[in-house]
Design a protein around this nucleic acid. Sequence first.
RNA 1: GACCCCAUAGCUCAGUUGGAUAGAGCAACUGCCUUCUAAGCAGUAGGUCGUUGGUUCGAGUCCAACUGGGGUCGCCA
Length: 589
Amino acid sequence: MNIEQVLSAQISEIVTSLYGEKLPEVRLEKTNKDFEGDFTYVVFPLLRVSRKNPQDTANEIGEKLKAVGHPVVAYNVVKGFLNLSISNSVWDDLLQTQWNNPEYGNQPAIQEKVMVEYSSPNTNKPLHLGHVRNNLLGFSIAEIMKANGYEVIKANLINDRGIHICKSMLAWQRFGNGETPDSSGLKGDKLVGKYYVAFDKAYKAEVEAMVAAGMGKEDAENKAPILLETQEMLRRWEAGDEVVLSLWRTMNGWVYKGFEHTYHRLGVDFDKYYYESNTYTLGKDIIVEGLGKGVFYRKEDQSVWIDLTAEGLDHKLVLRKDGTSVYITQDIGTADQKYSEYHTNRSIYVVGNEQDYHFKVLFLIMQKLGRAYAQGMYHLSYGMVDLPSGKMKSREGTVVDADDLLDEMHETAKAKTIELGKTEGMQETDLQQLYERLGLAALKFFILKVDPRKRMLFNPQESIDFQGDTGPFVLYTYARIRSVLKQAPEGWEVDGISHELHNTERENLELLYRYPEVIRQACRDYNPADIAQYSLDLAKAFNRVYNELSLLKETDPVRKANRLKIAHFTANTLRHACSLLGIAVVERM
RNA sequence: GACCCCAUAGCUCAGUUGGAUAGAGCAACUGCCUUCUAAGCAGUAGGUCGUUGGUUCGAGUCCAACUGGGGUCGCCA
């Protein structure tokens, strides 16, 4: 039972005895910084039963709480706010039992499995900043769920087939002259992306020529020879044409190699890969099942639909008139497949908010089909990363390439580090690792500290900060603590009776105390930003301690030991929080 | 046209289930390194929380309308 629960129970009991009314729940808040106290109880809602003014009501409760003896040692009342000060022994107890616990914050294992599907790239172009946000969110959510006791399966559903890949393939056939990643030195995904752009260029030229020759624009867009040829290529792919399949395998192979490189550098990984070339036929049998159950209906043209007007949505096509599947057909089939393989209690889809409607429909369909697991499906819908000029568009080249960005971050980290000149005597390999980790930390923090649901702005003209509320700041605080601890003399960990805590120490401990709840909250909200914001608060709190008080030079051995324990505890927690964000700490910077 | 999301300081973002005088960082300005890492700390300045109503002891937070931005809307994924 934590302190809030103890307090809530005490208050509940006091209120019942004073006013004879049982409270549904007692809500405590963290006391505002400008007031004395640790927790605040707002008494306004109580006035109805206390029949006294706010001051008297609060005083009455405060007096009784204090009389209990623990944990409240003092209180004050401002208007209707009852501010409670908690005994130092609470913080001391936390410190002595947890300061050296590297697992602090982790929740006990629960018997629940969750699949987190993220990344899910198309294989016709390289990854850009939008994918980076997806990857970082997916990875972080997976880590957060693990810390909350879930068994997590990270899945990547690769969109490896379809008209867009055929576009790259056709353009390569036509303009590529046999170019390969080896022959050109280009990363595989970049090479394929290059031909995707080449296709678009050739296509636009054809359309333009046809329009100039007098054809209507829409007509031209549908009848451009290069497009017709691409559609023919897709038909041959579906028919199992070995020539097409072989080219498809080769080019996808290049892309996977390129992706693997970027994933590895980003530090994300997967337990399970799904390929749409395998899953795109799934779901048709479920459509039949749904027709039998009356969930779907068939139109005269043989296409199959679901009527969701009762749910405030629309009619939605689930199978084309020619019997081929659409996007949602696959997702219906894949959902069943995932469940039959893993029997997950929850399934999280990390996908952009442009697909909000799609997932709303998908989840409804699974429910109507009577799938019990539908209850645990969740769409982690995140906003786009916009540029000052607007949306990123691959075809138009207005994208921030993931690899380029990572290189840039590395170089910036290097320049800043050299400028500060604190890395004397470090090995070259260690320095390279430092630059890479710093650059990644800056990027990851920049992305993860904002609410996933909101769209965010990235300005390539302004480099991502290394100062202020940033990843490097958190790493700096960690490295600073490590540096101090390295210099601490042997045997500093003396035990002793608790003493009066300095304000900054107390605030540091209060934050440490909150960490497990932050982890639970981040899981409830599916929001890594909770962790990021918290780690900033914690780092700031420690830096205040550091600036106001001596650690190594403290003469009182017990105070010194406790202060170093706070430092150690903070470092552990920062490292833990960083790991949930996919950020690796550095021992020195 | 219908539906969904968003709007907080010059910029980028926080703001717990409705609570006290709306907070950080960046940019600007002022202090603090012959003492544990100054990628830090302390401070100054910067706000009609898009607008107008409503709900109530209390609204940045909830409701409605409006304005502005983004997204989606039967055969791309």
